[in-house]
Design a protein around this nucleic acid. Structure first.
Lengths: 343, 343
DNA sequence: CGATCAATTGTGAACGTACACACACCCAGA
DNA sequence: TCTGGGTGTGTGTACGTTCACAATTGATCG
């Protein structure tokens, strides 16, 4: 009964073993591990060889105990679960952040706050210092978790501009208003004049800004603003479907719809199809996000690309900078019109 | 410049502070923290009060340093990214595992292995002992990561029976074959006799077993087996669409299709619609998974429910047991026919 | 040639906890 | 009364690392 054949876990080598193997002291090994400054080339080389030979991997717990950092980051989602299940944007963002952190050898802890209990538990976990910082996905205003974390001084980067948290919290967002402008201009350029809009939730910056961009362009083009052409949704597919139905009922002569998310746009396509309207011949449809949902839709969606790769990598960059002591920062990234079949 | 107004982080209380506050020794506090055995009620109460008063939270790094455990678990996804983005099943599973672990106060580390580089990095991370165990989502056979982890003796629980890893690795799976049988029986009961099937990838147990169930029921019902009615997909929506087209071309008289995943079934619905077949009148469609995609489909999918809640909670249970020293275990969970509009 | 300085290295804490151990106490049974 | 086992408690040590500090060297400069 000495050791299971399934591969028992033997005691891993420590920094001592490496030091002995390399013929140097712990301190030197530690210096090599942390950047290699003030180490002679010969010593560095010997240590590297010893590390390879022994298969040494740093014990993160011992390190964290003394540095006070955990070298890990939380990914906190406080959106309702349905959106998490339905919207592929989250997966894209989650993957992007995971990969960007992996490049720094920092693990991502997934935190899903659905119930109030979970909220409390997670807040406690984070403020206890078990993670160095938090990537926050919570577009709705008045999120109590975000406010608590901010008050506790936890480094925090939100995806999308948080409402009501002042300028103390970092965020990375696409230029929602500009993207909306591009799309509406595109619909105008196609000759459409009765352009409807299905907005996002109006307690989110994305919802507000995209609607503002829509209004701006119509105004500057001298197209009559008609409030019957404006309906609001909640980013869900179902709300897009319902929104399109309301739109068709209130303004049957609609010849284009700007939808504030691709997922809602899928619902809009469904409703239009059921109503017998051809897309894009009768009604052009423009989405927003360029999420996987855009290419899954039939016809494929003309949409505004949010640069998810850059959004996630910037979120990680800003968070790490803030953990390193930098001040909060805001990053706005440009969007891009992606023309496909729906408009 | 004493402390930033954003809320600087002061030194957190330690077990010493709690002990002093409660008028007991470190050892007693530690005992209260870890189960409370061999502690007098009076002392336990004093310690609890002191913990509340000081706001003490255990330092997990210090604990891990001495216990050798990390009290964290990895969630490893080695599927191709497209599936992660497209298939809501992953989100359901991810949420379930996160929540089940949260009940044990164990954080989930998300690990996505797309490239070989990532594979190596993750393997190294895991085998270094940075997590106590791994929840594995990787249905394809011959996954090198799984084999390496198994060989290294890392506690491992797979979602779905892994092919080619022998009985040494735990897994939790739904009863694929039985579920398939239920669905095909249901289609037979509707009077359909030309029942096609779009299988999953045949190097996955799900793909193989669901096909086997289909064949079994047809055989026992005395329905002629026709290989033209069998096409295979890869669980993606696109492969469902393509599969349905092949099916229609090879067997135009098909009056029902059993599809091995809801996502593929969405594709099947699209193809049938394009071909002018009504669902379920002309062709009944049965899916598999009962994922969010099932209710998002039009018409809503009749499908086989995989008990995702139980699958995730069982995965966590088995993994924790194995971390605690138990032997690997296999858990097969029953499925359930969910009747909706498509069949 | 002595003094100064930078580069490099070794050493002794310290981080906060769990665990093993020793000890004190109490009660039951011989 | 003595013994023994269970219960409750405090103390010393170890976990593996980083960091501050001291010590050594070699080179440069006045």
């Amino acid at each position: 009964m000495t050791m299971s054949s399934t591969g028992g876990r033997r005691k891993p080598p420590t920094i001592h073993d490496v030091a002995r193997e390399a013929g140097v002291s712990r301190g030197t090994v530690s210096r090599v591990l942390n950047g290699g400054h003030y180490v002679s080339p010969a010593a560095a080389q010997a240590v590297d060889a010893a590390i390879r030979k022994t298969g040494y991997v740093v014990n993160r717990h011992a390190r964290s105990l003394i540095t006070g950092r955990s070298d890990s980051v939380g990914f906190l989602l406080t959106e309702p679960q349905e959106r998490f299940f339905e919207d592929p944007n989250f997966n894209v963002l989650l993957r992007g952040c995971t990969q960007a952190l992996a490049a720094h050898d920092i693990p991502l802890l997934l935190m899903l706050a659905g119930t109030d209990d979970e909220r409390r538990r997670i807040t406690r976990y984070i403020t206890a210092g078990h993670v160095d910082g938090v990537l926050l996905v919570s577009s709705h205003s008045g999120d109590p978790v975000a406010e608590e974390l901010r008050a506790a001084g936890v480094p925090l980067v939100a995806c999308g501009k948080p409402i009501g948290l002042g300028s103390k919290v970092s965020y990375v967002a696409a230029d929602d208003r500009d993207g909306a402008r591009d799309m509406v201009r595109h619909l105008l350029a196609l000759g459409r004049r009765r352009i409807g809009v299905v907005t996002g939730p109006l307690d989110t910056p994305g919802g507000v800004e995209r609607l503002a961009g829509y209004r701006e362009v119509l105004a500057e083009a001298g197209v009559e603003a008609d409030e019957r052409l404006v309906v609001s949704g909640d980013y869900s597919r179902a709300s897009g479907e319902a929104g399109a139905e309301r739109l068709l009922a209130r303004a049957p002569d609609v010849d284009a719809v700007f939808v504030a998310s691709d997922l809602m746009a899928q619902g809009v396509l469904t409703a239009l199809h059921r109503a017998g309207r051809r897309v894009p011949e009768d009604v052009a449809v423009g989405g927003f996000d360029d999420s996987p949902a855009a290419v899954a839709a039939r016809p494929e969606l003309t949409t505004i690309r949010q640069p998810w790769d850059r959004i996630s990598s910037e979120m990680v960059r800003v968070l790490l900078a803030q953990i390193g002591g930098d001040d909060p920062a805001a990053v706005i990234l440009p969007t891009e019109l992606v023309k496909r079949a729906s408009a």
